[in-house]
Design a binder for these strands. Structure first.
Lengths: 201, 201
DNA sequence: CCGCGATGTATCGGAGCGATACATCAGGGC
DNA sequence: GCCCTGATGTATCGCTCCGATACATCGCGG
């Protein structure tokens, strides 16, 4: 999971760990956090797998005296060709693994890069997953309602409403997706002309 | 976490693993699943800690020839005095650990057994936790809105609305809690007279 | 000049999930 | 009488990820 998110973010621009995590938070919002405890080991693994490489273009390390002061310097990662390939591969997969709770948010975040047909498949998969869950909750609720105390009931109903809301959201998205039929799919190239984003050096 | 849930459920009646998990699903609903992969090891650990004991009152194992047929028989767990004590202890704690995402649902599910003052503390803690998160999302959203593509934006806003909805829910609960002031706190004894619940043998 | 908060890299223990294995038992279809 | 399926039931293993923690540097305001 984290892998996919990293591939997606690094596709836009090379980043170091810390900034990667900021982007992770900004991109996935409420859906997922991803702590450093997962991030760094995963980065190491992905580098070992050959999907990432360290980028030597960083201003901090540049300009003489590398090991002289013992400065550690940021470790900036960028995608290798293999990494980009892997990302495209992952974006095409629209299996059950794309619409589970933990997974869906990440896939959705990169819908801009995803094929319109795949988008709809994932949205529908997610929706029926949630509809299943909704029916499950409704069933148990109908069966046990009388035995439930005030608070448990409150919790169940709040949960149920959350799921219903989620389903409505997905339905709207699917409809929009169908109506526009992928009219603004926008190729969105890896836009290399970005000058490190925040303030000039 | 699982520990608290198990303590709470077993306080109502002795249960075996499988049924325990059914109750877990029925009680916590959408908020938490808890697979067998967590359940059984935790049960073992709790037994080792002396909070649980095996109950020998089960119909399957009863009535002669225990090892003769090799029948495994259900393993029914019940709380020890120590376990009950531990549960009460845990219900009193209203620290940050009570209102994190994974924790809150479980605490809430046992509000019926919880002191009214503690209830309000936890609800308020949870609310301010979510308000923090909401402000965080709003801030990043305001900062990055222009750079976000259609889907990422959609995701952020949906997330934000979810949090807002959650906050409103909590506010209502807190108000109700204050208004009734814990008027129907109901002692809710461990009700032992339950005859295994589903159909008679 | 000092401390504090942001930036930055990194590890460790532990919690919980998902898949899987295996065994029993009730029921229905043939 | 037979098998097959689905529910009940106990259990393990590998994996992902979180939260706490450690440590070092930097810029800024008091």
């Amino acid at each position: 999971m984290l892998e996919l998110a990293i591939l997606g973010l690094l596709r836009e621009a090379p980043l170091h760990g810390y900034e990667l995590r900021q982007r992770l938070k900004a991109t996935l919002g409420t859906f997922r956090a991803f702590s450093y405890g997962s991030l760094y080991p995963t980065l190491r693994g992905m580098k070992a797998a050959g999907w990432l490489a360290e980028d030597e273009g960083d201003a901090d390390v540049v300009a003489g005296a590398p090991a002289l002061t013992g400065r550690r310097g940021k470790v900036v990662y960028k995608l290798t060709a293999e990494g980009k390939e892997r990302f495209q591969e992952r974006l095409t997969e629209a299996g059950p693994s794309s619409w589970e709770d933990e997974t869906f948010g990440v896939h959705f975040a990169f819908f801009g890069q995803t094929d319109p047909a795949v988008r709809v498949r994932i949205l529908e998969g997610r929706r029926s997953r949630l509809e299943e869950r909704r029916e499950g909750v409704r069933a148990t609720l109908a069966r046990t309602r009388s035995r439930l105390d005030r608070y448990t009931l409150q919790l169940q109903e709040h949960g149920l409403e959350s799921v219903e809301r989620e389903v409505r959201w997905l339905t709207e998205l699917i409809e929009t997706e169908r109506r526009t039929g992928g009219s603004p799919p926008r190729p969105t190239p890896p836009h290399p002309p970005t000058p490190t984003e925040r303030g000039a050096p």
